[in-house]
């Protein structure tokens, strides 16, 4: 049987998800509500035959576009997902953010995303878990640190991500040692770890932006409507916090039109994250953030 390019990408990602599930007792998957991590979520449902046998973690910066949160909770209920969110309560209460004028974009990212994520994963800040009986989030009594964290980054997104390993160890402080990464070959990953370390797992590294959209079209993956032009000639190509993410000018209002636009149309040679302001602020800012735990 001849499998297609998408079939092969799908199989490799499912293999990585299954290996993670076998290797880690405290495993979770980050769900940013964007198209990549939603594709990853659907790959997990494929890998485990309609079930998702680990919690999904979302870092709520409280600056997400409201439709994203609505969409998150609707799918979490429909698909019976074990949904958890975390936040940087202190920074939000003290208004130490970029929109409040009290931080640069990069500082704001570090506080609301990186720090919130690090502490939510470690379990030393509160986690809020969806109660499927009431449809409401409740503070979770489970504070066990997650040792394996599945993340939907792609190598083609920007420079520092192109060098990530599939299983990427972080030390106690959550740091990424980009210069001394473990070897990875023959589908064998580093699954043996010293206590206190944790691992980021990246099943989508070999996917491109076009692969993601073609897979969404083939599998019928539901994505937020913000990705489509709603009639005002604008759509989001990459989703983040509203103060730092700008829509792009585009008439694409269907999956076919989005794919066409990326393959041969106006975006064929324009970087995906060109609407993300934090990427532009500093020459090596994202790499610095990634060493500190940014996704």
């Amino acid at each position: 049987m001849q499998y297609s390019h998408l079939d092969m990408l799908e199989s490799k990602s499912i293999h990585i998800l299954r290996e993670s599930y076998s290797a880690f007792r405290n495993l979770c998957m980050l769900w940013s509500i964007g198209k990549d991590s939603t594709v990853l979520l659907c790959l997990a449902r494929k890998a485990f035959y309609g079930h998702v046998p680990f919690p999904l973690v979302h870092v709520d910066t409280h600056y997400k576009i409201p439709e994203m949160i609505e969409y998150r909770d609707r799918l979490a209920m429909e698909w019976n997902l074990d949904m958890i969110y975390g936040e940087n309560r202190e920074a939000l209460e003290n208004r130490e953010t970029f929109p409040d004028g009290n931080a640069t974009r990069i500082e704001c990212c570090r506080r609301l995303k990186t720090e919130a994520l690090t502490h939510t994963l470690a379990g030393d800040w509160p986690r809020y878990r969806l109660n499927h009986a009431t449809g409401k989030y409740e503070e979770d009594s489970d504070r066990e640190p997650f040792t394996g964290v599945i993340v939907g980054v792609r190598a083609d997104e920007e420079g520092s991500r192109s060098k990530e390993r599939t299983f990427s160890p972080r030390d106690r402080a959550g740091d990424w040692d980009a210069d001394d990464q473990p070897p990875e070959f023959w589908g064998q990953y580093k699954t043996d770890f010293a206590p206190g370390t944790h691992v980021r797992i990246h099943p989508l590294l070999d996917w491109t932006e076009v692969d993601i959209w073609e897979y969404i079209r083939r599998e019928g993956v539901p994505v937020v409507s913000l990705y489509f032009n709603q009639g005002d000639g604008k759509r989001y190509r990459s989703l983040g916090c509203w103060p730092c993410t700008k829509p792009v000018d585009s008439d694409a209002s269907t999956l076919d039109e989005i794919i066409e636009e990326l393959k041969s149309g106006k975006f064929a040679r324009v970087a995906e994250r060109s609407g993300r302001e934090q990427d532009k602020e500093d020459g090596g800012g994202l790499e610095e953030l990634r060493r500190g735990g940014y996704m």
Binding site: A155, D156, S162, K163, A178, D179, Q181, T208
Partner: peptide, 8 residues
């Protein structure tokens, strides 16, 4: 070059 990078 220290580590492998992928280009598409």
């Amino acid at each position: 070059t220290i580590d492998t990078a992928r280009c598409f």
